[in-house]
């Protein structure tokens, strides 16, 4: 992931920002059912777990020695990612929010998402690979106020009426999980 993002026109960049800012606003406004419409039906939503790895002595002096990738137990690993979900589980999470007995979110958390560093990394016909970073401020009664921080590695599908998320991998900046839940939409 050392490559420079591909060159985009201001209009293309604006198009991506428009999509991501809209998505963040829907989520902060708790409009999760509308958020679901931004997903492709075959969406994959992954959160790798992250570990403190043993440094490979033979890689000393090289950037690879401390590469973030070594810390991730993702979908292809034989470890255990935090989340590996398709549309149905995401829908279950979204619908849960509107039940009165969803106790951990009742009263619901206040959130504010700031999405930035949006980079188009690859573009082939209608498929785009996009990186973005986020800070998510999260407050709910009885919990401390929490800052979630991470990177999103998206695959988007460009359709006539806008983008759809086909795949999202969320790289969180935690090993031990010192936040109340990883069950949010990042």
């Amino acid at each position: 992931m050392s490559a420079l993002s591909i060159e985009v026109t201001p209009e293309q960049q604006r198009q991506l920002e428009r999509f991501y800012f809209h998505e963040a606003r829907l989520l902060d406004n708790r409009q999760y059912l509308q958020w679901l419409t931004l997903l492709s039906e075959d969406v994959r939503y992954i959160i790798p777990s992250r570990v403190n790895v043993q440094v490979n002595n033979r890689a000393r002096g090289q950037e690879d020695m401390i590469s973030v990738e070594h810390e991730l137990e993702g979908e292809d690993s034989m470890g255990c990612p935090h989340r590996e979900e398709g549309y149905i589980l995401l829908m279950l999470r979204a619908e849960r929010a509107y039940k009165i007995n969803s106790w951990s979110e009742n009263p619901p958390a206040r959130t504010r998402r700031i999405v930035g560093n949006i980079e188009l990394m690859e573009h082939s016909s209608d498929t785009l690979s996009v990186l973005s970073n986020f800070h998510l401020y999260y407050a709910r009664p009885g919990s401390d106020n929490i800052l979630y921080s991470g990177q999103r590695r998206d695959t988007l599908l460009s359709q006539a009426d806008g983008f759809r998320i086909v795949r999202r991998e969320v790289v969180l900046d935690y090993a031990a999980i010192e936040v109340p839940t990883l069950g949010l939409f990042f």
Binding site: L92, S104, G142, P180, G183
Partner: peptide
């Protein structure tokens, strides 16, 4: 098959678990 079976745990339990997020909340309360 191991990769499928691990999600029987992680989807419902653990830090991202759709069930255990309720448990952890009441434990703290």
């Amino acid at each position: 098959i191991k990769k499928i079976l691990r999600t029987n745990y992680s989807s419902f339990f653990g830090p991202a678990g759709i069930l255990e997020q309720e448990d952890s909340e009441v434990w703290a309360q």
